[in-house]
Design a binder for these strands. Structure first.
Lengths: 159, 159
DNA sequence: CTATACTCGGACAATATAAGTCCGAGTAAG
DNA sequence: CTTACTCGGACTTATATTGTCCGAGTATAG
């Protein structure tokens, strides 16, 4: 799994704390990661419609939807791509004892089992929202944590 | 996910049909894939103890356990490695507003949610065995399919 | 209205990982 | 004892990920 998923998720959580646009460079500094590379992940989120980009002097990124309606599956699919992790190359139709294609109406048993497991994974991801994560952060680190993040994001840079 | 998982799973299913050792080259010819590369996957399965290698003139690979006691999770872990797909780099402990390490007793909420989804995936894989796949193949392609595979595996090469 | 400074967006390298290949050590058969 | 066939690990290539850069565009400030 792409490591950018972790960055994207953390960015979505902290964007919960700000109603004004936050520049990508500010998010990168907050997390102490490469700003040039984080931009790529944010662009993926923007292409997927999860965040909206505002250009200009005081621009940046804002969540487009309410945090309660953004699931972890949305973020993962936006960053890692919508395709399945297991790809079936139809091995059964190759080799000297290949199954005739006329008998291959549905997916092969191997692919069915692997895709069923992936569906369970997706369902678990779809059952958690960004709002749930933000609430968990409040429980873990106290409500003042996200408040100070919000202040740091919107305030002028303190060097 | 590594593409070798598909090859390894199909090999385990066909090994169900043979009680005598099957060489890696024979398995590769049956599936029409690179023999040199399939050897690597089979070595992973052997290291994990799922299959046993027999050397010498009429050697090859045999399943060590009964097909009913080999789960898809066993095979996936053997080929793709036991580590989790999502790796937490502890972003919360970095940057100007880093969470103090004293407050980080458990995993961060992001990692917890991602790992919970992976657990659901693992549980789904652990609930299916190689024997289940072999039975599904019988249902899909008829019982004669695996019988002919068994004959082709054990018989002398027909050019 | 104009100039400016700050933003995103996509195109361009470097690196890590997966895919594929090869030859030597070892072993059972003849 | 010889031989031929097997696995096992080391090596090379291809691909995807990670990381970086500069140009297009826009809201702000004068």
């Amino acid at each position: 799994m792409s490591g950018g998923v972790e960055w994207a998720l953390h960015c979505c959580v902290v964007l919960t704390a700000s109603s004004t646009p936050v520049p990508a460079a500010r998010l990168a500094e907050l997390h102490d990661v490469s700003g040039s590379y984080l931009a790529k992940q944010l662009q993926s989120l923007a292409r997927a419609g999860l965040i909206h980009s505002v250009q200009g002097k005081s621009g940046g990124y804002v969540l487009t939807r309410a945090p309660e309606s953004i699931t972890l599956l949305d973020v993962v699919r936006a960053v890692d791509g919508p395709g399945p992790a297991f790809v079936c190359t139809e091995i059964r139709q190759r080799g000297p004892l290949a199954t005739p294609s006329s008998a291959c109406t549905g997916a092969c048993p191997v692919a069915r089992a692997m895709w069923a497991a992936e569906d369970a994974w997706r369902q678990a991801l779809a059952s958690v929202t960004i709002a749930d994560l933000a609430r968990d952060v409040d429980v873990d680190s106290g409500p003042e944590a996200l408040v100070s993040v919000s202040a740091w994001l919107t305030g002028d840079r303190d060097i």
